[in-house]
Design a protein around this nucleic acid. Structure first.
Lengths: 110, 110
DNA sequence: TTTATATATTGCAATATTACGATAAAGAAT
DNA sequence: ATTCTTTATCGTAATATTGCAATATATAAA
């Protein structure tokens, strides 16, 4: 085995899992933090910023892009990456909905 | 290789990645959704609810517990699981901080 | 005590992820 | 045209994850 049974879960559940999974690595969190800090969309700088080789960073960027968390735009011979707030907002909303749902139920357990 | 270089990143980054990673599987999202729905902390029911074998569910529960997202309490011969809002709140706060940071910068890119 | 019920652990196979060196691709600079 | 710069891709090794059958553990019920 080893393959996730995505077909057994709802689209919403798979979508949230995909987003969360993309954030599930410290290098990718660091990339987000950096993009947030510099705001302007530099790219090669990320390689300098992280303690990882260029192909590894490129791979992490690809995963963030696939999950829709960042966008990339060609700019000359370099590529400008920046955050895609839509995706991040979806995850934030999901977390928020969990919290507010639980709040209204003043949970009686544990 | 294959091992994540956690030692090169900040504690905050590793913490967020750990939380997100725990949410990075549809089965674990489904477990959270279910715990939220039933509120009261049933456990064996999760096995009935999910399209996965008991050992697989047990493993997912273990991962959620390790990440601090759920708590388990022995109750007779069964175990009562429920959500740990502290952990979920941390992730929600992180997402929210990204969004509000970006908001204040009216990002000029892509 | 024996049996049933509930959950965890072990062991294993299939697959996925992480990391990087080597190399390719493509525009910029000379 | 050649070289430099920037990023992506390929190939591969190490490790992690997913999933389950079999089994262990532990309490409840009989």
């Amino acid at each position: 085995m080893g393959a996730t049974k995505t077909d057994h879960f709802t689209e919403q559940q798979n979508a949230m899992a995909t987003l969360a999974k993309a954030l599930g690595h410290p290098a990718r969190i660091a990339i987000i933090d950096y993009l947030l800090k510099v705001n302007a969309c530099i790219c090669g700088d990320i390689v300098n910023e992280l303690p990882l080789a260029q192909p590894t960073v490129s791979q992490h960027l690809k995963e963030l892009k696939n999950a829709g968390i960042i966008k990339g735009e060609i700019e000359g011979n370099s590529i400008c990456y920046c955050l895609n707030m839509d995706a991040l907002q979806k995850l934030a909303q999901y977390c928020q909905s969990i919290i507010s749902t639980q709040d209204t139920q003043n949970n009686s357990c544990c």
